[in-house]
Design a protein around this nucleic acid. Sequence first.
DNA 1: AAGTAGCG
DNA 2: TGTT
Length: 216
Amino acid sequence: MNDLLDGARDSAAYLEPIAEGATLLRGFAVPAAATLLAAIESVVQAAPFRHMATPGGRRMSVAMTNCGRGGWVTDHRGYRYTAADPLTQRPWPALPAVFFDLAARAASTVGFAGFAPDACLINRYRPGARLTLHQDRDERDFKAPIVSVSLGLPAVFLFGGVQRRDRPRRIRMESGDVAVWGGPARLAYHGIAPLVDGNHPLTGRCRINLTLRKAL
DNA sequence: AAGTAGCG
DNA sequence: TGTT
């Protein structure tokens, strides 16, 4: 299992700058992808995917679940991190070591040493699902970066600036790609364009995204 | 301290 | 969102 992670160092992974403080690691998670998928399965068994509601009452097209000490949730009361899954009233499943290690290593590779995530949001995109431009600002402190892992179908990642008016770049994310943003880019607006239908050997007709954060 | 990852 |  460690050899899967170590393998990333020797694979064809390469870095691609997105913006100041934001980097794309292409192919970084390819060697660990199957292991990550297995861990996702076990999380979902305890905390199933669900479509949360925005404070305005709209159902999100992306299905979500969480693992780690904190889980991101939204409902009519707003956005926040909770220790327990509102669906089951039980604590969110533990953060799998393979998630933690991958995120810490990706962060350290691009200059964020000591990243210790305590929350992982798992997003499932089916064809047509999207995330409009938003900032991640529900975390306690913004010193820690965000690490985002793409698995399955490709998607167009929209990455803008810290001002909403900044026009986002469109970046194609493929399975095994990892985006890391922090420092001056920590509050950058970002999103995902509507997922294009397709079939991926790993996930079938969907894309799974892991977003690791230090939230607490 | 009001509004929000959605909508047209 | 609710409340000093």
